[in-house]
Nucleic acid binder design. Structure first.
Ligand SMILES: [Mn+2]
Ligand SMILES: [Mn+2]
Ligand SMILES: [Zn+2]
Ligand SMILES: [Zn+2]
Lengths: 161, 161
DNA sequence: CTTAAAATGAAATTGAAATTCAATTTCAAA
DNA sequence: TTTGAAATTGAATTTCAATTTCATTTTAAG
């Protein structure tokens, strides 16, 4: 008796989770969604749609930009992706695979994006909110400045975070 | 000998400051700019262009939307206005007349926007940045939740902040 | 005044986000 | 397996705020 093993466990598990989520919503599992999900979950960083689409198109040029757009919106609705709009105005997406909440440090020189968590910050936010009679559900916290290397350089190179 | 006095001192002073700033930049002082500035500085809150234009048009319907747009951009460049983009995606402007830095609490129910300052928060931000080798120049900090009234109501009314 | 430069405002353009719609695919039920 | 309603796809189109264009008017220096 032969058994086949899929060694890409992480991916397979994600796909199954996805299929479950999808069907629970009365939606359908499609090749396109699976491919986009796979590529998106196996990537890191904060990418705009054009970048994600480019990556998808490398694997399957038949998949349309609109489908990538709609799938990222779907993933966001399902909690698998998070949409970010930093001060440069671009709409970016990041995977929530790691799951943990975090905020961002953004280098004005090279564009590097560093993630951080700070419990003190979170609790301070709630204290401030309570002080004004608010109940907080989420927040946006971005720190803009220069990273170590850029703080020294005269002409920092632009790269992506 | 007759002297004329303008009793709207605040306004006049702002106007003079503005004329100085304007001419320092090689720009010209115009009736439109003066009117828009006057209306903008004598208003409070976080308004989008359409709202500011509507207010301007009430006083002088001859002033074009484009001029209001350009003047708000100018005021932003001169530091008299600040552009804000909260999570609803709308572009808003607020006067910096008071001058002090502040962050925002935003009610998801009624849209109310409450401003706050917290030195502890500011210093914590710098501590976090230093921890990651960053030098911070500005930040964005918005807390989203429900204000006291909305936290209780079943169907909060939408109003503007 | 005269004149060059700047400003105005209606109209046109831009570009990202969102929608449309005919063709295709999915999947539950037969 | 077949069927067919419902969902999805993707190219094209639309939307809509932000921005630019450009002919005309206004400002202010000389
Ligand atoms: Mn992140
Ligand atoms: Mn404010
Ligand atoms: Zn940097
Ligand atoms: Zn409220």
């Amino acid at each position: 008796m032969k058994l086949k093993f899929n060694f890409k466990k992480g991916k397979t598990m994600e796909s199954n989770q996805f299929k479950t989520l999808i069907s629970e919503e009365g939606l359908k599992s499609t090749r396109q969604r699976a491919e986009i999900l796979d590529i998106f979950l196996n990537s890191t960083g904060h990418k705009n749609l054009a970048e994600i689409y480019a990556q998808v198109a490398k694997t399957n040029p038949k998949i349309g930009y609109t489908t990538v757009y709609r799938t990222l919106k779907l993933l966001t609705r399902l909690g698998l992706a998070a949409q970010r709009k930093f001060a440069d105005g671009e709409t970016r997406y990041e995977s929530t695979a790691e799951g943990t909440h975090h905020d961002h440090l953004i280098c004005l020189g090279c564009g590097k994006i560093v993630e951080f968590e700070d419990d003190g910050l979170e609790s301070l936010q709630h204290r401030i909110a309570r002080r004004h009679g608010f109940k907080i559900f989420h927040h946006r916290m971005e720190l803009y400045g220069y990273c170590g290397p850029c703080a020294h350089k005269k002409t920092p190179l632009r790269r992506k975070g």
